[in-house]
């Protein structure tokens, strides 16, 4: 699915990622954990195509293609989805309009016809129920006046409808209370499938109580300093990040 090799990324002259290596196979869930400033958000941005970053070395190959060479909308249409840490508001544009425009652009990319209006509504309403959302949500402007929890749920709704292959969740748990966290996690779990992979970027282990990862990687100072199974997250919870950062410093 995704193969990252020796990836180096800078913002301006400042190196942020310093040689990331990561292999993600279909169906796997990888959690990327790390302290603030370790480069977690940079990793999710560079994979999804946000501007303002420079790749200085290394590669990222997605389904056999050079991911870093694609425009952001092409990555999206090829199945890369970023659930934003801070979803933006778009006044005057209804959720349902955005969803339909997005779905159709993806379908068009794959040579499919535009979705029929009735079929689309049936699809959307089904997903709305799945995420325990109010249908009124659909007709409100994108994220305008939404609470933090509603915005995150909205991201998962978009994911459910666009059915991406590689989902990158950027600090999806930040700003969520425990109830919202449960709903969002259930939404993500319902989307797990053998041909869909997830990269969860998170600071805290609590998200991993709800979405069980196959692998946990610890990012510090722009490098993956330790990888392991779910038990690594628990160890981090107990000891914090400092023992890994110190280990790295003394190495």
């Amino acid at each position: 699915m995704l193969s990252i090799k020796n990836l180096h990324v800078s913002v301006g002259d400042k190196p942020i990622l310093k040689g990331i290596n990561l292999e993600i196979k279909p169906g796997e869930i990888h959690a990327i954990m790390g302290p603030n400033g370790s480069g977690k958000s940079t990793l999710s941005h560079i994979l999804s195509g946000k501007s303002g970053y420079t790749v200085t070395d290394g590669s990222a190959t997605y389904q056999g293609k050079d991911l870093l060479d694609m425009a952001p909308e092409i990555r999206a249409r090829e199945g890369v989805f970023l659930a934003f840490q801070y979803p933006v508001e778009i006044p005057g544009v209804s959720n349902v309009y955005l969803l339909k425009a997005a779905l159709n652009s993806i379908r068009k990319h794959h040579g499919q016809s535009e979705v029929d209006a009735m079929d689309f509504l049936t699809l959307v309403k089904g997903k709305v129920r799945l995420l325990d959302m109010d249908e009124k949500f659909l007709y409100r402007a994108v994220n305008e006046g939404f609470s933090g929890g509603e915005k995150k749920r909205n991201e998962i709704l978009q994911m459910a409808i666009l059915e991406p292959k590689l989902c990158i969740l950027d600090e999806t748990d930040s700003g969520l209370d425990i109830d919202a966290l449960k709903i969002v996690s259930e939404g993500v779990n319902s989307l797990r499938s053998p041909d869909r992979s997830f990269v969860m970027v998170t600071h805290y282990q609590r998200l991993l109580d709800y979405i069980k990862p196959d692998f946990v990687h610890v990012l510090a100072h722009g490098q993956i300093v330790k990888s392991g199974g779910p038990e690594l997250a628990l160890e981090l919870e107990e000891k914090g990040y400092s023992w890994l950062e110190d280990a790295e410093a003394s190495a």
């Binding site: 195509g49 979803p87 933006v88 425009a101 652009s105 666009l162």
Partner: peptide, 18 residues
């Protein structure tokens, strides 16, 4: 806003127009 729309598959033109 533009990046968000592009990340959902819309071209930059369609995003601005929307």
């Amino acid at each position: 806003q533009l990046f968000f729309c592009q990340q959902r598959g819309l071209s930059a033109e369609d995003a601005v127009s929307m």
